[in-house]
Amino acid sequence: MSHTVTTWYLEQTARTDLAPAVEPPAEQGVRIVRSEVPSPEFSRFLYTAVGGDVRWTDRLGWPYARWSEHLAEPGTETWVAYERGTPAGFIELRSGPEGAVEVGYFGLLPAFRGRRIGGHLLGYGTARAWDLAERWPELPETRRVWVHTCSDDGVHARANYERRGFRVYDTTVTEEPEVEQPGPWPGAGPVPAGAN
């Protein structure tokens, strides 16, 4: 069994394209911190906890060594949003050729969506993509920041990117096999309305 997936490729080609979001209220206790010590365990936790209900499956089979190798690549950074000390979401940046930086992954754990954290995290993380070479002097200055999102992602994903100043430059439509939505553990995910 399969389903149709539309994928949108979006980009910013100048630092001035970035439109930051309003920060969450101070009493919400949101802060964004770079995870500077590569930790496959933590990165896999973020990946499964954020992507479990939106069909992120491409890294589920990665062994520990592959996670370690990926996180050690120059210009790969993970920035984590915390709300009062609890991980709420993350944005992963990956340096590519000719000064292109990809937003490899971005999202929030289900319980933290709709709390004004996502736009702030995306804006902050995109700004870090633009100044990536300041932390990695061996890399070229950022000339372009790009991302792709698809119809399997959260319903507000594309609009959030566009509000931050990303523009669609390509669209593809493919048939993808149905996969079980694994979550960070079997049965995890948002509680359906009225199921309390």
Rank of each mutant, 00 (worst) to 15 (best):
G123A: 06
Y9M: 12
W79N: 06
Y9T: 09
E73C: 15
H156N: 08
P87Q: 07
G183T: 07
L121V: 09
E178P: 01
Y161G: 02
G194T: 05
C150Y: 08
V155A: 09
P140G: 03
F106T: 00
E162V: 06
L132I: 13
R163L: 12
Q181M: 14
A193F: 08
G52T: 06
S95L: 00
L71R: 10
I117M: 04
A100I: 08
R44E: 11
F90W: 05
E175H: 08
G118R: 00
R128P: 01
W146R: 03
V145H: 02
G75Q: 06
V145F: 02
G99Q: 05
D152S: 07
T149L: 04
A49P: 01
V33E: 14
Y124L: 13
V101I: 09
W8Q: 03
A129L: 05
P110D: 12
D152H: 10
G29S: 05
E98T: 10
E134H: 14
R31C: 13
A49N: 14
W67M: 12
E69F: 11
R116H: 12
L46N: 05
V147Q: 03
T57K: 05
T16W: 01
P40K: 06
E176L: 12
G96K: 08
P97L: 03
A19C: 13
R115Y: 08
W56S: 02
G187E: 03
I91Q: 03
E11Q: 13
W136S: 08
E36S: 14
A157G: 00
E92G: 00
W67S: 10
W136P: 01
Y105G: 04
S95R: 00
V145C: 09
M1S: 15
T78S: 07
T86G: 03
S2D: 09
V168Y: 01
S39C: 15
S68T: 12
A157E: 02
G51M: 02
H148Q: 13
L93Y: 04
E134T: 15
V101R: 05
G118T: 04
E11I: 02
A188D: 04
T48G: 02
D170M: 11
P97D: 11
P137C: 13
E23L: 09
E41P: 02
A188W: 15
R116Y: 03
D53H: 15
E98C: 14
V22N: 09
W8N: 10
V103F: 03
W146P: 01
V191F: 12
E69G: 13
L109V: 11
V103G: 00
L46D: 01
